[in-house]
Design a protein around this nucleic acid. Sequence first.
RNA 1: GCCCGGGUGGCGAAAUGGCAGACGCAGCGGACUCAAAAUCCGCCGCCGCAAGGCGUGCCGGUUCAAGUCCGGCCCCGGGCACCA
Length: 951
Amino acid sequence: MSSPQATLPDDQPEHRYNAALADRIETAWQDRWDADGTYETPNPVGPLSEGFAEVADAKKLFVMDMFPYPSGAGLHVGHPLGYIATDVFARYKRMTGFNVLHTMGYDAYGLPAEQHAVATGQHPLINTEANIATMRRQLRRLGLGHDPRRSVSTTDREFLEFTQRIFLRIFNSWYDPTAVNRLGGPGRARPISELLESYRTGGRRSADGRPWAELSEQEQRSLIDAQRLVYVADVPVNWCPGLGTIVANEEVTADGRSDRGNFPVFKRNMRQWLMRITAYADRLVDDLDLVSWPEPVRLMQRNWIGRSVGARVRFTTAAGDIEVFTTRPDTLFGATFMVLSPEHPMVDALTAESQKSAVDAYRSAAASKTDIDRQDEGRAKTGVALGASATNPVNGEQIPIWIADYVLMGYGTGAIMAVPSGDQRDFEFARQFGLPIVATIAPPQAWFDTQGVEPSLDTAAWKQAYTGDGPVVQSQNTTLVLDGMNKAEAVAATITWLQQHGHGAATVQTKLRDWLFSRQRYWGEPFPIVYDDYGPVALPDAMLPVDLPETDQFAPRSFDANDSASEPERPLDRLAEWKHVTLDLGDGSGARALVRETNVMPQWAGSCTYYLRYIDPTHVESLSVEENQRYWMGENGVDLYVGGVEHAVLHLLYSRFWHKVLFDLEEVHTPEPFGRLFNQGYIQAPAFTDQRGIYVEASEVTEHGGQFMHDGQPVKREFGKIGKSLKNMVSPDEMYQAYGADTLRLYEMSMGPLEQSKPWDTRAVSGSLRLLQRIWRVVVDETSGEVRVTDAQPTTPDLRALHSTIAGVRDSMDALRLNTPIARITELTNHLTSTYPAGAPSVLAEPLVLMVAPFAPHLAEELWMRLGHTQSLVREPFPILDPSMLVSDTVAVPVQINGKLRTVLTVAAGSTGAQLEAAALADERVSSALVGRTIKKVVVVPGKMVNLVVG
RNA sequence: GCCCGGGUGGCGAAAUGGCAGACGCAGCGGACUCAAAAUCCGCCGCCGCAAGGCGUGCCGGUUCAAGUCCGGCCCCGGGCACCA
């Protein structure tokens, strides 16, 4: 693509606003802002409280960006989109009287730094700190108004201590579903000491009913540990011996191998740390009503948690009870068979001798199938009968038990009752294998009509299952009569009956699973946990932080790639002196030999609660100072949180979970961390592929007559997310050099709606530079450098232009519609430059400068100073709208005939409907169009429009 | 297949149900200049000499009036994978 004009001709006016001048202005103002502490925001109390008295009456505003991972590649122009938007918003809010907290941190634990360390043998901290320094430089050059004192990294020692401290709060808690929480709803986390006390005093007993005192120490510890919000359990994971770590589903290829290294991956159970996020499933769903977030994100979280209300039903078999989960207990009389997942633990016990070989074959076929294979199978149902039956609790019928891979072990109980008349998958399965289909809900006439089928309860003619509502039929026994009820009534009646007869109970099922919290890596937060003979023990807060020990071996131990039984050996396992310690935990046991936990926390840990660090960045004695936290979090938490939609589920769900635990423990005081969320779009850029389909460096591609060429060869243009992988990076550094930071800021904000993805076009940046040049010329003479504003009085059209701009800008800022205010500012600028080519009245130039300040702060500060002000404009009041200035003597009123525009009348403001109608009819273009036609109706909206309906 | 977005000039985009295309990029014409750059002035949806007609993915509907509301479909982007 064409490269930006880095230099401009030599003979341009000496004081023209160009890249070189912008660079001088921007650098100077950045230095002055730093020196003056312009963006330092005071806390109510503590070390950062200086100056708070001056803003004590202002409203607070806490603005946050999703903090970045400090990548080695530095920034590209896609990164700052959200950062500029929050900065524009924060600057606008400062100018409208808010005390604004805005800073930026770094989410610096993570895999790329570890892999770099493995490759180079250099400690990841060295590389991480260098990357942070680069990003800080690039962001500072952008002129972001961040409080530098609050800029933290998750790897800072104080931050590490903070993260470990929160971990211990969660570890030392359990979830009491019967307790009333601070919002008055059911369920809250309570200190583990209260659970212990309840056992000690006899309020609770072990599962087998023995009192606390009769339990062994091991039994006591296990009983408590099993109920913590952080616990150890065997869970199915993707174990990759070749890498020596567990890998995520998305890192496993379709043929069951690791993304990196292409090693085999084995699904097996392994002891892992988990966080009990499922305890909060209901509140995580319900409290989405408390936040103003984009509806799609709330929907994604609801779907991810996947709450469905239904019942558990027990079916008896010769080998014991099988429990199923169903959302449709009302259709129980239509359950004509049962399907287990191939991995269900009771399959072996239920399989008849005659079916053994078929079942084994099906099971191994299902196990070896990849997701891709299953997908290719399309809709055809497969399965094998076990040769056993179960008793349907409502009618005593013996129904056959099958296994099929459409039933998943990971959801519900891994077993379903199949109701083919009311579930399409069960219907297809029944048709495939000739199983009975019994209708229990009578479909309406309309349904049969759309099917083209004669209405009948004889399902032989049905083409598909009926999943809708309708009167229940064929559903009664001696103690339960559902016939005639609707769906909701029948669900309730069935659940009551199941409970009374001991066959089941109402339950809520979620898709959400507990959060796997341990990683077999080096570059993460160590757990503040040691083990004694009975299990894990929390370190006391006074022993925090647990620092990462020094080493130069950062990779986990890898094993023979096929050794599926191998056990992970983590980097910290090799550090025997660190791992084996003698400590006095202060619990009365004295100094004793203990073993440290050698897993580390996942990268999510650091991003869960970093907003609390921004509030009190140096504080370590507790999570934060309550007065500061209550001030900044207010009623609704962070006032604006901006980031990419890719974090819609995981980060935001984990963060909400931790916050809710801390809320229950009265460490924080809002039910939700982020009151308002905004997702910015991506910046996309052209990317080019050669004839082999390989990406080529986009900056080296040239265009000749509509044909894109690279290295003499034609290449194909695509569009994609800007970045390294598509070789279409555009660095902000290039933009600073060619245009200046203010132009880059203005361009990114003017590209289009913030939430939309949009293509980068370096050529179009010049339009933003030209606007800033015109604003510059409103104030400064390009040749002499003299300030050229005048004392002239503004005219009525001037004031109308000014105030319509004020109205347009103010209207859009709160909603983060940041592209249209720039258009309004452009209009005002064009009005001033064409009306006053030799210098505009200062009463117009000053508000123009103030309005552009959030977008182009350096330029605005410079002009403000040249206009004679000695104070920074950062806290100068934003121009205020005088609505009377928008009132005009005349208005333009469109006249339509049959809805089509015919003319526009200029009439006196406040004309009545009758006057408008008369004026319209008197218009020549209207009357000529009306020749030979009759007016049937006249619609007049006074001040707005006239529409003549003619025959 | 399901869920979530989105389809408006050559391009990025504006538009509380009330003048479609504000503002900008690119382009075209003119002024200034020896020339160019910069700047300034003007043009710039499509068809048509014009009058006028047609235009917001497609087909219908509601309305005096639809880019906007309703129903159905098509295409593009993102997410999920038989969730009982």
